[in-house]
């Protein structure tokens, strides 16, 4: 059987909110090392890679590897039925047709069970090569979300230019243009407020706002976001998920006509 328990459902609720805009369904690969999801959005522009390690769960049991096709829209609805402080347990039997979500209140006086039908999915797995990126920017996730939101008013794409001076986000459209420059922070009281730039070579890439604005739905998961970029390859936008894992979004850049 498969059983995975988290003491607080908040993490799983945030994970679902972070993927639901991009994915309508996805296969959850469960093994004794944890839960992995890799799925592209419908337009095959972006890819979501989610990894939750078994040792990050309060209880984790997976007797045999399982691939469970889940409807993300339904799963999001179910997770919204849990209070953030509720314990959440995912349970499925071998060769399952269904998965059960069990929410238990901290006082243990309320126990809710939701059963969701699994779906058969065609799987298309992509091999993501290990890449040394020219620029890696770590910055406050709320700042990145704010920049994406603000610049989206000006155009449908954001250009990210990273040099040793700092990182510049810009957008241009019919009504004008905007740019926001961030320099590496010299000294900060709190690590999560730092902007840190690791640059081997300058990079300038352009990305569709629509996808960036979906990625920033992961902001509640982590105070910092890591952006990894190299010329002519997809952006990696990564959020840690506490001590349990991470979510990575890959986004194909715009190509000059």
């Amino acid at each position: 059987m498969f059983e995975a328990r988290l003491a607080q459902s908040a993490i799983l609720k945030k994970v679902l909110e972070a993927v639901k805009d991009l994915l309508s369904e996805a296969t959850f690969e469960c093994s004794d090392s944890g839960i992995m999801v890799q799925a592209m959005d419908n337009a095959h522009v972006s890819l979501v890679s989610l990894n939750l390690r078994s040792d990050g769960f309060d209880k984790f049991r997976c007797d045999r590897n399982l691939s469970m096709g889940m409807n993300i829209t339904t799963m999001t609805k179910i997770l919204r039925c849990a209070s953030s402080e509720d314990t959440v347990t995912l349970r499925a039997w071998d060769n399952p047709d269904n998965i059960i979500f069990i929410f238990e209140s901290p006082s243990k006086e309320k126990l809710a069970e939701y059963e969701m039908k699994l779906i058969n999915m065609d799987q298309e797995h992509l091999g993501i090569p290990e890449t040394m990126y020219s620029c890696v920017v770590k910055m406050p996730s709320a700042e990145f979300a704010r920049i994406c939101k603000d610049l989206s008013q000006f155009g449908e794409a954001i250009t990210i230019a990273c040099s040793k001076e700092g990182v510049k986000f810009s957008a241009a459209g019919d009504y004008g243009n905007a740019n926001i420059k961030l320099a590496q922070t010299a000294e900060v009281d709190k690590e999560e407020e730092a902007v840190c730039i690791d640059m081997q070579e300058p990079v300038k890439l352009t990305f569709a706002c629509r996808y960036l604005n979906s990625f920033v739905k992961a902001t509640p998961l982590c105070a910092q976001v890591k952006l990894s970029m190299s010329a002519d390859v997809p952006l990696v936008c990564e959020y840690s998920i506490g001590e349990i894992g991470h979510i990575r979004y890959y986004l194909a850049p715009k190509i000059d006509d």
Binding site: M40, L126, P129, Y250, L251, A252, P253, K254, I255
Partner: peptide
């Protein structure tokens, strides 16, 4: 602002 690339043109399908 250019043509939108597809992610599966960058990564090999396994």
């Amino acid at each position: 602002t250019g043509t939108q690339g597809r992610i599966d043109s960058f990564f090999k399908i396994l």
